[in-house]
């Protein structure tokens, strides 16, 4: 059963297309990763789902069905009621997402109080319990402290506690560990995987890190130039990527089991900005398999493992 179904989503800034026909599904208890580089449209897709697009950006097409309701057509007050209760989001920068003047315990409890789900006292107690569950030592004392008195890793755990306290059915995590050190990242990823499994939360994980995807996600959508270029279950997608971009992206990552000091595989050219996206396939100017056919837009072929390419890779190398 699908909880979130994004269909053919399009986002524009004026006439400039930034997200162009993105479709993806997330089921309860499932972690779906949305991967891409800067300008791929992955974060805008997430913000569109939450109805949090910045001024000047508009959803110009498609639907975001959440539990059967199209969120893009929902009035702001009903959407706000869903956010913080059913839908929660974790951002990359924990420090700037928290209010520097409010003790962290109260920020964690906020969604319970605002949505009248608990009294102040009950919410405060629930917040301490939630801080303990996300691995914050001495949660009762920490709850009284301001974000500036906590480390970055602890602030990120506070954000996660605030997002999870209302037991959301859908959690959107936008680069939740990118600003963190690798040993703290390991703690947070383990925590998110456990919570998805235990509480049946549907998780949409936005990241640029293929390592994080492989650790946490069940399915993955690879985005490039505002479109999904490949999607499918992680195992076949990593073992035998079919889109040339996915394949090249995986090959550029220095591996821990290959000889050192050698030439690394590199994708030629630069990540194009939305103003300079080529006609047709947007990866074709950097692709070694491109032909004249690629000046037309490739459709995402149907199936469990989908790819949008006129010359997909048939067999793993």
């Amino acid at each position: 059963m699908t909880l979130l179904s994004v269909q053919d989503l399009a986002v524009q800034a004026g006439a400039l297309s930034l997200v162009d026909g993105v479709s993806l599904d997330v089921a309860p208890g499932e972690v779906v990763a949305l991967v891409g580089e800067s300008g791929s449209g992955k974060s805008l897709t997430a913000l569109s789902i939450m109805g949090l697009l910045a001024e000047g950006l508009t959803v110009t097409g498609g639907r975001v069905d959440y539990d059967g309701t199209d969120l893009t057509a929902l009035p702001e007050d009903r959407l706000r009621a869903l956010r913080g209760a059913d839908l929660a989001m974790i951002f990359q920068e924990p420090v700037s997402s928290l209010n520097p003047l409010v003790p962290v315990g109260r920020q964690v409890a906020e969604s319970l109080v605002v949505h009248d789900r608990a009294s102040e006292a009950e919410a405060a107690e629930a917040a301490i319990e939630m801080l303990r569950r996300v691995g914050i030592p001495e949660p009762a004392r920490r709850a009284t402290q301001l974000p500036t008195e906590l480390s970055g890793g602890m602030c990120q755990r506070v954000m996660i506690a605030a997002a999870l306290i209302s037991r959301p059915r859908l959690l959107i995590a936008d680069e939740p560990t990118t600003a963190l050190d690798v040993t703290i990242q390991a703690q947070i990823l383990t925590l998110m995987a456990d919570l998805a499994a235990d509480a049946g939360t549907a998780v949409l994980l936005i990241t640029h890190d293929m390592g994080v995807v492989a650790e946490l996600a069940g399915r993955v959508c690879v985005m490039y130039g505002g479109r999904v270029v490949e999607q499918g279950p992680v195992d076949p997608l990593f073992a035998a990527p079919r889109h040339p971009y996915t394949r090249m992206l995986l090959r550029t990552i220095p591996r821990l089991d290959e000889p050192t000091k050698g030439e690394l595989f590199a994708i030629r050219g630069n990540v194009p900005s939305p103003k300079n996206w080529p006609e047709g396939c947007r990866f074709r100017t950097r692709c070694d398999r491109a032909s004249d056919a690629c000046t037309a837009r490739p459709a995402l072929i149907k199936g469990d493992h989908r790819v949008a390419c006129f010359h997909p890779v048939e067999d793993p190398e």
């Binding site: 990242q185 390991a186 890190d209 390592g211 995807v213 492989a214 990593f238 591996r255 821990l256």
Partner: peptide
């Protein structure tokens, strides 16, 4: 050991 490896089979 904390480096996430881009290989789901290692999970």
């Amino acid at each position: 050991s904390a480096i996430p490896l881009p290989d789901p089979r290692q999970r």
